[in-house]
């Protein structure tokens, strides 16, 4: 009995953290291989560049994480990213940088909320609705810019994206700050608890008096706001905004979210896993380049990693279920 109590404890820990442990091991392994094969890779400067490459995907993944945990999804974030970046750049030309960034956040929030409201009202799959917005918003960006990048933003606006905090570029700091905040929200507040609950059983939440509509609309709004912020940061960082920004951003974000252990059906996931997945994807991408391999392999490896991870997860889940059923049967007999 005493032994029994100890074994389930580490088993339970492994069950809860196995996914993250696996991701961390994969990340460590990838870094180790790179450190040996390409000495220049493991320098602070290079790692900062990698982090910067992943910052925008990481920020988008955070928004997608809390949407998916609540049982929703927004596919339009790639186009929204481009739209808010372009609008921030345009605004920056005629107003102070602060207004441009705020404008991008507000625009992102408003469009996110609009998506959410439409999904709520029409009661259709968010995949269908936001697939539509994905196309619409990309079209709007192209119409707005005539297909050309918005250049010549004032230098002050351009400088903000170059700021560094403790040696880290602003987008990376934003990612880390948002990640910490998202983790806190999901694990320590009623808001996060209710998001998980809605992803688990929406009807139960309605019966329990949880303001489901407000939470679902709120998560779309916040998601849009986050994308707006990162769009503005991108425009500032690059000193210009291209209408082709953020193509396939939604796919990268969803890849990271699923690889990070968020259940596509909602109700399960954690920020640490998603951040580990973002890091792993970033290291795979940049590592393949620095090893001198054809960068097109990066996409292949990315896809294979996702499939391998979810397959492994599903198989171990099935094995656990079977074990549980068998031991339950044994108890019954």
């Amino acid at each position: 009995m005493a032994g029994n109590a100890i074994v389930p404890l580490w088993r339970r820990w492994l069950k809860d953290n196995g996914r993250n442990l696996g991701l961390a091991l994969a990340l460590g392994l990838a870094l180790l291989v790179l450190a040996v094969l390409s000495p220049k890779y493991m320098t602070f400067d290079n790692l900062v560049v990698v982090a910067l490459q992943m910052a925008f995907i990481g920020i988008a993944a955070l928004g997608t994480t809390h949407l998916v945990i609540g049982g929703n999804i927004d596919l339009s974030i790639g186009s929204l990213f481009a739209l808010t970046a372009v609008c921030a750049a345009m605004l920056a030309k005629v107003s102070p940088p602060f207004v441009a960034i705020l404008g991008a956040i507000l625009l992102g929030s408003a469009i996110g909320l609009l998506n959410g409201a439409l999904i709520w009202r029409v009661k259709l799959s968010p995949i269908i609705i936001t697939l539509g917005s994905l196309a619409i918003l990309r079209g709007v960006v192209l119409l707005l810019t005539g297909g050309y990048s918005v250049r010549g933003v004032p230098s002050l606006f351009g400088e903000i994206g170059q700021w560094r905090l403790v040696g880290l570029p602003l987008p990376v700091c934003t990612l880390l700050g948002l990640a910490a905040f998202a983790h806190f929200i999901l694990t320590h507040t009623t808001l996060g608890r209710h998001l998980f609950a809605i992803g688990g059983n929406r009807e139960a939440c309605e019966a329990a008096g949880i303001p489901v509509r407000r939470l679902v609309l709120g998560s779309f709004l916040i998601n849009g706001g986050i994308i707006g912020l990162s769009g503005a940061l991108a425009a500032s960082r690059f000193g210009s905004a291209s209408p082709s920004f953020g193509i396939a951003l939604e796919l990268d974000a969803i890849t990271a979210v699923l690889l990070g252990g968020v259940a596509f059906t909602g109700g399960e996931g954690n920020v640490l896993g998603v951040m580990l997945a973002v890091a792993l994807l970033g290291v795979i991408n940049s590592g393949i380049v620095s090893l001198g391999i054809d960068p097109n392999y990066a996409e292949v490896v990315k896809g294979a990693t996702l499939i391998a991870a979810v397959t492994l997860n599903q198989l171990s889940h099935e094995a656990r279920e079977q074990h549980r059923k068998r031991s339950a049967m044994r108890e019954l007999l």
Binding site: H194, F196, A197, G199, N201, E203, A204, A208
Partner: peptide
């Protein structure tokens, strides 16, 4: 109407944490 993904404690206190 339980949330299968949450623990017993979270379910009991759902909506009035």
């Amino acid at each position: 109407s339980l949330c299968d993904n949450l623990g017993a404690a979270a379910n009991v206190m759902l909506g009035q944490e």
